[in-house]
């Protein structure tokens, strides 16, 4: 199963096209935050931008932390999401070691489901869908 990797972030220009695409196509809203991928300027000594994005854990700590089964282990790593089961407890976001889950002001979690919709909107090919290793 393929998953999204932000493999060439050195090329990123910080346009937020990827986040906007995920919000538009997956979550049906206009946002640069309610998205599976979110862009931040790196600051500090390094320059450029970093992506906050699911790293496809297997087993996934966020799924283990989810009390209702809204997030479930995905084959090949990462999670599948059933929004209807979510009670906005925020346990998943707290469990993710790399801050890949965003919560909106109502507490709804946003996590990458590795659908690949954002890839074609990155103007510099920073993103790719990659087959899981091993």
């Amino acid at each position: 199963m393929k998953h999204l990797v932000a493999s060439r972030m050195e090329r990123c220009i910080g346009c937020h096209s990827c986040s906007l695409a995920c919000a538009r196509l997956v979550h049906k809203c206009l946002s640069w935050e309610n998205a599976g991928i979110r862009i931040q300027s790196s600051g500090g000594l390094s320059t450029g931008f970093t992506a906050k994005l699911c790293l496809v854990c297997d087993p996934a700590p966020c799924a283990a932390a989810c009390p209702t089964g809204s997030l479930k282990q995905r084959k090949g790593g990462g999670v599948t999401q059933n929004k209807k089961l979510c009670i906005q407890c925020g346990k998943c976001a707290a469990a993710c070691p790399v801050d890949a889950i965003a919560q909106d002001r109502q507490g709804n979690p946003y996590v990458c489901i590795h659908c690949g919709s954002c890839v074609e909107f990155c103007p510099h090919d920073c993103l790719e869908m990659r087959e899981a290793e091993g």
Binding site: I13, G14, C15, S17, W32, T47, F121, C122
Partner: peptide, 17 residues
């Protein structure tokens, strides 16, 4: 030229740093 950057919402990225 070190890199380019963009305004949010612009895939062109005309900012030259």
């Amino acid at each position: 030229l070190l890199r380019n950057a963009a305004c949010a919402g612009c895939p062109v990225g005309c900012i030259h740093i």
